[in-house]
Design a protein around this nucleic acid. Structure first.
Length: 227
DNA sequence: TGCCAGGCCGGGT
DNA sequence: ACCCGGCATGGC
């Protein structure tokens, strides 16, 4: 079986099981970007608590968050863990927004429209230069906040693929991303739903130490597919 | 009770 | 180019 066909069947099996995902949870692109930082190695449940506190502080707009004192910002982030680090990372992201806009403060524009003129090929390296924004966070922002056709890779993607034997377990981010992106149609909607389904499937069936592979909607056709 | 969660950085080989 | 410890809270 060709790789593209295999990956599309992989997608179809998950989609049959779960249905559409409606990702990313967030009212605005700015919220999505904030969530992408807060969810780094963190359960989404805890991210929601922090997002709730930010919302109460009216800080889910770039300018208000920028004007928050460091202790105020940290207090909002407390339930999401790594809260001191994440406060710095959000401030670095806000500083980047201000710099792109050529202002001292980030534009008070939760739609992040001021990024729209930048091509993905130039914006992605800029995001990666920000301290605290790595490949997954950058790609989540590009795909889920800015609707760019960028395939997002995460721990579940690597674990599922390596458990099925279709990639080596220590494959790096770029190579695993290429494994999907090089053969799939370059469609934002497909990349959006595909990653969402991998996370939903991963949470339920591909936990690190409690896998439920036999009940997984992927069944085992992947093993057959690589023969 | 310990392990884990939708990573990333900085310092070491 | 990897490998590792640190970062921190909350749920199971």
């Amino acid at each position: 079986m060709q790789q593209a066909e295999m990956l599309l069947q992989y997608y179809a099996a998950m989609h049959r099981h779960f249905g559409p995902s409606h990702w990313w949870p967030g009212e605005t692109p700015f919220e999505v970007a904030v969530g992408a930082v807060l969810t780094q190695n963190t359960a989404w449940r805890n991210v929601e608590k922090a997002m709730g506190l930010l919302r109460q502080a009216n800080a889910l707009s770039p300018l208000v968050m920028h004007e928050l004192s460091l202790p105020e910002l940290e207090a909002c982030l407390l339930p999401s863990g790594f809260y001191r680090m994440k406060a710095q990372r959000l401030r670095a992201l806000l500083a980047f927004f201000a710099r792109v806009a050529g202002q001292a403060s980030p534009p008070n524009d939760p739609s992040l429209a001021f990024l729209r003129h930048l091509e993905t090929e130039t914006l992605r390296p800029m995001l990666l230069e920000i301290n605290g924004i790595g490949p997954e966070t950058a790609d989540c922002i590009l795909l889920y906040a800015l609707q760019r056709p960028v395939f997002v890779v995460d721990a579940y993607t690597r674990r599922m693929c390596s458990r099925h034997g279709v990639v080596p377990p220590k494959i790096n981010y770029h190579e695993l991303q290429a494994f999907f992106s090089d053969v799939l149609p370059q469609e934002t909607a497909l990349f959006n739903e595909y990653h969402a389904l991998i996370v939903r499937t991963g949470k339920e069936f591909c936990a690190k130490s409690k896998p439920r592979c036999k009940e997984c909607p992927l069944g085992g056709f992947l093993e057959r597919a690589v023969e």
